[in-house]
Design a protein around this nucleic acid. Structure first.
Lengths: 200, 200, 200, 200
DNA sequence: AATGAATGAGGCTTCATTCAT
DNA sequence: GATGAATGAAGCCTCATTCAT
């Protein structure tokens, strides 16, 4: 790794933590510089402005997240397990990549073109992954028969629903530990709550 | 209504729009004052600081949202319809009460005690409503038999999943209009995607 | 005079001196504020930015200059005297209104619309004044007969030539005091240096 | 040419353009370095500071201008033509040597000793040239008889007047093209505008 | 009850200059 | 010779808040 890249990595590392903790607006260049062990103006040697630092952090984080999601899916064989791994990975990974999470779930960044682009790309990646899993599940017979259209719709609903996890209840529910939560979610997803219609 | 209350209402009305559009940090006292047709320093006659204005707005909005949710549930008879109405109302109402939404779904407010309190109270209210619906559904036979514990868990999962709706995909999916989206969600919730196990 | 106008006048007074001495770029808001006996941010209560303060100073100065020029012309009866008074007034008045002078004679302001407008307006005012004097002079017989076109051209040449005065030689020429300089200029203007063609 | 001199020439070439376009203050070392195809700190190997670069540019430009003025005067035979050539050359040459022009016509450089020296030397050179032409003209009979003192004064007035040309009206006067302008000026200079006193 | 006026604290950015290599 | 990396000092501007009236 070049000296250059090393310093950039240092900057981004500190920035990642700070932006993640205080957000874009409330993190100051001063803080980022201090975290990187550099002078404030040094930052401008490596980045044109605060915005670009933030964008760099987000881009990096998104790559991490996507990589984790892919790994999760590939690490299991049954489709149900893939789904479970997917939501667990999303939960964990997005948590650990706060800046990216902010961009995906807040609207304060709607003016930044690059971030908007990343956001929509991320959405598409997720949808494609889910559809891939659904397709696999129907082929192995784990899931019901589902038309292409239906799979599309379900993927969208699922992606949307999974998002909610990123804002867990403040009032921790003691009865439902994190791990159990995911199982419960998958259960619901597999079986639903409706009463099975009796066959004669 | 007292003169006082009238002015306060005026201030809050403008503040609600501004905070909802630009957020807490980027909305200035100047803007709020202008929107209320008052001088900037007048705001300090009615509120100790910007924070309190924001909190007042959020508290007001939360009342609206809760009222809408209750109305939604009461307006239907079947439990499935109650669920549908609930998520539709949540979608619409939270949308229209931006400041409250921000507080519920962002972490930038974690230092404000009052808001944290409102947040967790809102969570409990939602959970209770869902459990109420679930209980009703099991009693009428619309839903499976569900233990108290199970209902608790499901309520929590559902609340969490519903949240995702508040951050719809940027890339509008043409195949799934808003209305249809809710139906699809309920369907999934009722039936799941697992292949029904054959009975001999 | 309102309190408002008083403060604005105070600010402009200090700014005028500072801008005149150090120019737009090198004069700081800090200095202007100190000169006005106010805090730096107070300036922003009265003016949107440094640029506007400068523009206000220049506009004010231009009014002074134009008034002086008009007074000069009106204060004499003979056309030659009017010319003399005009150049003297221009010399003195532009000197005393440094900011305006900068705008008229430097190109650093070409991006500021308002200043460009003032600049060209000032040019037209001067040209009109000179033409007015020339016309008077020809009518009284002090000057040669001059066609409209010719007068136009001469006015333009004169305005241009007069400008040079605003940048007097650094190396003060002892033989030519200020007062004498103007007389010499008018002399040259009246008679020229060419040898009069002999009449038989 | 040494390697050293070559690099210096490269630097000055770019600097000349940049200073000429944006002025001393607004031209950055970064820009100069880029224009020279060198690193920013390299400039400090060849020049102690930005000031010295500017001074070097100005000194070079002044030599160009003086050479052009001399050529202009020598290229004509009649004294009137010499004057015409002089002002044309001044107009053209000063235009093309912006930095020098800035120094001669602005006061922002009054603190730089070297520039002040160049400025006053330039003034003296001009005055001497004009006096030389005037002397020639009186000897050939083209111009009136003029005492030494008178010539001195006239030279000074002329130099001063010629300066105005360097700040042409923003509002281009359509009736007076550049070329014509000079003729008009010389005409006025030769004949004046006064009515010739009738001889009996 | 209302506000005009004022400001301190703080943030982003620029840039000439330095220095180790 | 040449420069990449670093920075201190400085400047413009924003804004929540205060206070006398």
């Amino acid at each position: 790794m070049e000296k250059d890249e090393l310093v950039i990595a240092e900057i981004l590392m500190g920035a990642k933590r700070l932006f993640g903790t205080h957000g874009l607006k409330k993190t100051t260049m001063e803080e980022i510089a201090t975290a990187a062990g550099k002078g404030k103006s040094t930052l401008y040697y490596y980045f044109p402005s605060k915005k670009e630092i933030f964008e760099a952090v987000v881009e990096e984080e998104m790559k991490n997240v996507v990589k984790k999601l892919r790994e999760a899916i590939n690490s299991c064989t049954s489709s149900k397990d893939k789904l479970l791994a997917f939501i667990k990975a999303q939960f964990t990974s997005v948590r650990g990549n706060q800046c990216f999470r902010l961009v995906v779930f807040e609207e304060a960044f709607d003016s930044m073109k690059l971030l908007m682009y990343l956001k929509s790309r991320y959405e598409q990646i997720q949808i494609d992954m889910i559809k891939e899993v659904l397709l696999g599940g129907t082929q192995t017979g784990e899931f019901k028969e589902l038309s292409q259209t239906k799979m599309n719709k379900i993927a969208l609903v699922m992606i949307t629903a999974f998002r909610g996890m990123h804002y867990p209840p403040k009032s921790a529910q003691p009865e439902l530990a994190d791990g159990e939560y995911f199982d419960e979610m998958i259960d619901l997803l597999m079986e639903g709550i409706g009463r099975p219609t009796e066959k004669t």
